[in-house]
Design a protein around this nucleic acid. Structure first.
Length: 423
DNA sequence: CGTATTTGACCCGCGC
DNA sequence: GCGCGGGTCAAATACG
């Protein structure tokens, strides 16, 4: 390749010799240098000698080698030559292009590695949770974990988060069953075809996990927080002891997803606080914004099922390492309550959790003071961002953004991309 | 006209 | 057994 490249360049060099006059770029300098360096009386540069000029040859030979490094845009000037300069500019631009491509490749690799690490950590987290359950005598969890691992390792490619069900198989089946039609299930229970409700401990466990729900408290004046999903209202009730009605929504993003239920109501004491309860897991691909909330609720539900149900009292997040792993930046805003009838994880986005890195996308979400209700809209829209920030460690996001921006910044002026935007 | 919302009726679980 | 409350259904209505 080197020889051919040189030959081509030589040919180009020779071919462009005749168009020197058309190159205006460094005309002044060129004339000056030509007057000094060239001994020929004509304006025709010593192109023939240039081929033998060691400096030029070295430059041509070194260019490919310096592509991997940071070649200076302006090479040291060899004997004045317009064509030579033009060629060098061209070479420099080509080198820059090649370097940019190389950096793009590196960035892609970095991003892929980071995502891989994230997924690996998530799988590891799930495994830990399920091993914990395994010690309680539930043997199904481990198998599911192995399945997830195998899926991940076999495919090599990343499994979309929405397809990784964080719950154990029994829970998945149970939830999909119950959520498919909880109402009809109740009705069906009277049918003779239904197996009589046996009172095994397994079913008791399923019954408890089936109703695991995630409650999100956020300040918003909107009737419903926008989490990226498409919800259809199917009912409304006046709740006891609350002047504000309670609305019932169902996910309509997929025909086969009647499973999702969402209950929204306003806090009785503070009507600016919107309480949203999520039950179940989506069985269809989700947009990134919706995926954030879905993964949050899923992770929270998994956290709930991981062993905190042993306590009948509320357990705050800092005491739960798993919760800390899921929501590292939200200490104090996550409450796990295993009290009857169903265990609930409460994500309180109305409290101030403490200082957060400024580079993260989450700080503007948390801790909206009650006085800052002049702009309620961002609060509604950023709930998904908050959940995204909780699912994806903000520190990780910030570090990734910093790394990418540093790389982009090294290159020069190309670093204005919003790579830190969470999905 | 298709889709989303409203709203009264109905079902079911639970406590008394 | 009965009443209450939560949750869901489905017809009617509104809306784009």
């Amino acid at each position: 390749m080197g020889e051919d490249g040189r030959r081509v360049r030589s040919l180009e060099l020779g071919g462009s010799a005749g168009v020197v006059d058309e190159m205006d770029f460094f005309a002044k300098e060129e004339q000056e240098r030509a007057r000094r360096a060239s001994t020929t009386d004509h304006g025709v540069p010593r192109l023939g000698l240039k081929k033998d000029d060691p400096a030029v040859n070295i430059g041509f030979q070194l260019f490919p080698a310096t592509l991997e490094r940071d070649p200076p845009m302006v090479q040291h000037r060899s004997p004045p030559d317009e064509d030579n300069d033009a060629k060098r500019v061209l070479e420099a631009m080509q080198a820059e292009l090649a370097r940019t491509n190389e950096e793009n490749r590196r960035l892609k690799n970095m991003l892929s590695d980071a995502t891989n690490n994230y997924n690996a950590l998530q799988v590891h987290l799930i495994r830990l949770m399920q091993e914990r359950n395994l010690s309680d005598g539930n043997t199904q969890f481990h198998e599911v974990t192995s399945e997830v691992d195998e899926r991940r390792e076999e495919g090599g490619a990343m499994v979309p988060l929405q397809f990784i069900d964080l719950r154990p198989a029994s829970v998945v089946d149970e939830e999909s069953y119950s959520i498919t039609d909880e109402g009809t299930r109740r009705r069906r229970s009277s049918s003779p075809a239904d197996p009589p409700p046996s009172n095994s401990s397994e079913q008791e466990h399923e019954a408890s996990t089936r109703k695991a729900r995630v409650s999100v408290r956020a300040r918003s004046s909107a009737p419903m927080i926008s989490d990226g999903c498409h919800w259809r209202k199917y009912g409304q009730k006046m709740a006891k002891g609350n002047p504000c009605p309670r609305a019932y929504y169902r996910c309509t993003m997929a025909a086969g997803c009647p499973v999702r239920k969402q209950v929204v109501q306003r806090c009785a004491e503070d009507r600016s606080v919107l309480i949203t309860n999520y039950e179940g897991t989506h069985n269809h691909p989700l947009p990134p914004a919706a995926m954030a909330m879905a993964s949050t609720t899923s992770a929270a539900a998994a956290m709930l099922l991981s062993g905190s149900t042993s306590s009948s009292e509320g357990v705050t997040n800092p005491g739960n390492p798993l919760a800390r792993a899921i929501m590292p930046s939200s200490s104090g805003v996550v409450t796990v309550s295993a009290s009857a009838p169903f265990p609930t994880v409460t994500l309180d986005l109305t409290r101030t959790p403490g200082p957060l890195p400024a580079s993260s996308s989450s700080p503007r979400v948390f801790g909206q003071p009650p006085g800052n209700q002049s702009k309620p809209q961002p609060v509604t829209d950023t709930v998904s961002v908050a959940t995204a920030a909780m699912v994806a460690d903000p520190n990780f996001t910030a570090a990734l953004a910093a790394a990418i921006s540093s790389i982009m910044g090294r290159k020069g002026d190309g670093g204005t991309h919003q790579t830190s935007d969470s999905k």
